[in-house]
Design a protein around this nucleic acid. Structure first.
Lengths: 336, 336
DNA sequence: CAGCGGAGTCGAAGCGCTTCGACGGGTGAA
DNA sequence: TTCACCCGTCGAAGCGCTTCGACTCCGCTG
């Protein structure tokens, strides 16, 4: 292992000078800095993370709390995690993976042990048990998702409320008068997951604003669940012509189910979704959708965290505005 | 922050005694040990990870190199990562996420910086550029997947060769005489990904052994690719009655495509897959499959690593035997 | 009863790094 | 020419922890 004294010797300076040359915390002459940098390169020196920590108190590690609860779409979570890791690397940080079952305890442990110097928290619920901990922690954190009481916390999310509204606005603009929301699995609502609830609020209030009929149906995943919910929708709302889907893996099965019931998309039924763009684009019928920008959320979260670490004040909430992309699944309502 | 001297003061002993009481590296009287443990509990003491590292040289962190290349099924990778993280926690370790684009450099960095004290490497290719590095590293590592030259490395994987054979054996046993393998996307083979190649070998050699006709078709994902490959198969092998699928996201679309071409599963065509059990079980027609035990692989990898860290010798290769689960997608070939 | 050795504990050193205070020498102002 | 000051550098201290060597009891053995 090559250490700072090796570099110092090679560059003909003292270890502290090497440290300063690398950190830039004190002025160092160009000539010296260059010699140090050369020595670093030649020896392949890399500061030992552990040794840096006690004194300098930064581990350059971000913890990422990934709950992976049931009903949460895995690829979304993963893309998210990857974007966090990538963004973290761009800021010279690494990412420590904290999984479910550890939840609060994991965050506390990592904080106490000084393993990480900031935390990204995913899949935030309206009343999240981790919130009090996060507030009291000396570590900065950023939440993906906005809880009921976000004061004192930094949050990033897609504006799901606006996304719900946007979908309804779009359908209403096409003349649809009876709409339904097919949502995430029931357990997601029971847990009071923030984004799912917000979407429902947006959906409902926009429908009311447009004075159109609306219902909300949480729905599990899988072919059978899709069929069941489709049948139920048609039974309860025979005049239904617009559907908003907020349940990635259900998209294809649902289109199938509707077609089996004799409803073609978009001729008889217009469909919009809130989901990652690739999912919408590669569905059986490309689906008009509001994209969930997981990658951008991850990047934003890391940026915020880095700024917090450097002491820069950051906005409390960052809600990304939803953008609707029209695809083949929506059309104007056929004249009555 | 509560430190070891606080605990020592409270327990009425010296810091070194606390250290020994906690690590067990020297005999400590029961009475003292108990007092120390009480003090730890009461103060909520947790050793600072950074401070421990320089002297004791173990960071208690495992690095997980997740390449997330295109064509690799995301949920499989994720489940894998989660099982690694969970198993690591069970051994009092944390997991550092290393992503693509970092590849070799990331591993080297983490090793040099002492950020991790072992590495789990996923998605190993037959000629993997990371191998020389891993061999030369002072850190122990475990590969998920078996490269062409595995000497000096510890590897775990499903025995994909045997899995390929098992599928063919099953089909042959049901009387099928013309079979095809629908594989992973072409880029996977171009990269010479180990497991994909091995499966092909097993498939082909078993078919030869049974003296039945066989072809291999790499295939992208998505509905169109499924349709194309289905049409091609029937054109090239009109007598085809058995298909092995090694391409998770293609399963449903492929069944669809065959049915659209007038072939029902399993009446006209028997289908087996090599994929995670849940994927096979929840397909449109539950598919007879050889499970890819991602969770078990992750757990095994961590176990091996922990043993290596403790100096225990471990077997060089662990190939999990494939197990075939019969579901609704295979049946005896209809009498000619 | 002296001597030995092990159990249990302590103090001090040291891990690799950062940072604080200090120092030398050059520069510019008076 | 002198003095103040600042730039660039160095040495030493210290971060929280582990570990090494040493010391003190105390119970045995001979």
């Amino acid at each position: 292992m090559v250490k700072i004294t090796d570099v110092a010797r090679r560059a003909g300076v003292s270890p502290s000078t090497v440290s300063y040359a690398l950190s830039g915390k004190r002025p160092i002459s160009d000539a010296t800095r260059r010699r140090v940098q050369d020595a670093v390169r030649e020896l392949g020196y890399r500061p030992h993370a552990g040794a840096r920590t006690p004194a300098g108190r930064r581990s350059k590690v971000l913890a990422l709390a990934v709950p992976l609860r049931s009903g949460v779409h895995v690829p979304v979570v993963t893309q998210f995690a990857v974007s966090v890791a990538t963004a973290a690397r761009a800021h010279d940080h690494d990412v420590l993976l904290l999984t479910q079952g550890e939840g609060e305890e994991g965050i506390r442990r990592v904080a106490d042990a000084g393993l990480a110097d900031a935390v990204v928290v995913m899949d935030v619920q309206l009343q999240d048990p981790r919130l009090p901990l996060l507030r009291s922690l000396p570590l900065p954190s950023v939440l993906i998702g906005v809880p009921a009481e976000p004061d004192g916390l930094t949050c990033v999310d897609l504006d799901f409320r606006a996304a719900g509204e946007l979908c309804v606005d779009h359908l209403a603009g096409l003349g649809h008068r009876v709409v339904a929301l097919v949502g995430s699995p029931p357990e997601v609502y029971v847990r009071r997951t923030a984004f799912a609830r917000r979407l429902v609020q947006g959906f409902t209030s926009a429908a009311d604003r447009h004075r159109i009929a609306s219902t909300v149906h949480p729905c599990g995943t899988g072919r059978d669940a899709a069929r069941a919910v489709a049948e139920r929708l048609l039974r309860e709302q025979p005049a239904l012509t617009g559907v908003v889907v907020h349940n990635e893996p259900l998209l294809d099965p649902l289109i199938d189910a509707f077609e089996r019931l004799g409803l073609r998309v978009p001729d008889d039924l217009s469909l919009t979704a809130v989901c990652p763009a690739p999912v919408a684009a590669s569905a059986r019928v490309p689906v008009t959708s509001v994209a969930v920008p997981s990658a951008e959320l991850g990047t934003r979260a890391v940026h915020l965290l880095v700024r917090k670490l450097s002491g820069t004040p950051v906005p409390q909430h960052t809600l990304l505005p939803p953008r609707l992309t029209e695809r083949a699944s929506t059309a104007a309502r056929a004249a009555a």
